[in-house]
Write a protein that binds this DNA or RNA. Structure first.
Length: 256
DNA sequence: ATGGTCGTGGTACGA
């Protein structure tokens, strides 16, 4: 079983790259973020033709999430039950014998801003909901753009980013509170080279210089962590022409 | 050096 997550920064622009990546990587489940496409314009046909069932929760211009699955999808949910929020950031499905939760966590803009407060509030509501999800589905995977670099080793320049948004202590503590429910950062279940990131700013040749952050994560519940066989970042698409600023992240697992 | 680059939509704004 191959699970993946990719912030595509406009599915309209990136659809050819998604189709190309599906062909070569062949994930069983893929969560997309920042699709930026209203549901009525979602490119369902091209993705179905590639062999995937598709569900989506989108809006114009901002946010938007989708799940592509080689397996049939049931039990779809698009809201944090305790938070009324017009921003389309959540898409949970049951497929392939597991619960697959796809998230686009708020960016937070800057520490102390209104958007930062919204991010922390959103994460608090997320925690309460994930606790319930985990009780109902012990085999749960949470993927997405978390907009949080878990540790300094996930940051190209920890001094530059010290207590900045994406790296601040309250954000990291909110992520740790999610992990404390029983999830593991799948990437850290395996030996990794230093300097592996999943997002690089478009500016200042950040990708060429590998000045990035690892903010795209795949969290596995305890029942699934035992079944992980690999977890990695696929840097390839970040080097393609007109790329997203994020690379896909992948986890592979083997369970009965 | 306080910038820089994208995507959206037709202008600033979000990331």
């Amino acid at each position: 079983m191959k699970l993946a997550s990719w912030n595509v920064n406009s599915l309209k622009v990136r659809l050819p790259q998604v189709l190309e990546w599906l062909k070569t990587a062949q994930p069983d489940l893929l969560g997309l973020q920042e699709t930026k496409v209203p549901d009525e314009h979602f490119p369902s046909e091209a993705l179905r033709a590639a062999g995937y069932e598709v569900v989506y929760s989108g809006q114009k211009t901002y946010n938007g999430v989708a799940v592509l699955s080689r397996w049939s999808i049931t039990e779809m949910l698009t809201e944090l039950p305790t938070l009324a929020d017009p921003q389309r950031r959540v898409l949970a499905v049951t497929a392939a014998g597991l619960r697959f939760i796809n998230l686009y966590v708020p960016n937070g803009q800057a520490v102390g801003s209104d958007k930062y407060a919204y991010k922390l509030d959103w994460l608090a509501h997320l925690r309460g909901w994930l606790a319930e999800e985990l009780e109902r589905w012990p085999r749960s995977i949470v993927v997405g753009d978390f907009n949080i670099a878990p540790q300094d080793q996930d940051v190209h320049d920890p001094q530059q980013w010290h207590e900045q948004v994406l790296c601040s202590t309250p954000e990291r503590e909110a992520l740790q509170a999610l992990l404390a429910l029983g999830f593991a950062d799948s990437f850290r279940q395996f030996p990794q080279e230093p300097g592996i990131f999943s997002w690089w700013d478009y500016r200042m040749n950040s990708f060429r210089r590998n000045r990035g952050l690892r903010i795209d994560l795949i969290l596995s519940s305890a029942a699934l962590t035992r079944t992980l066989t690999a977890s990695y970042v696929d840097r390839g698409p970040r080097g393609w022409p007109r790329p997203s600023d994020h690379a896909p992240v992948v986890a592979e697992l083997h369970f009965e």
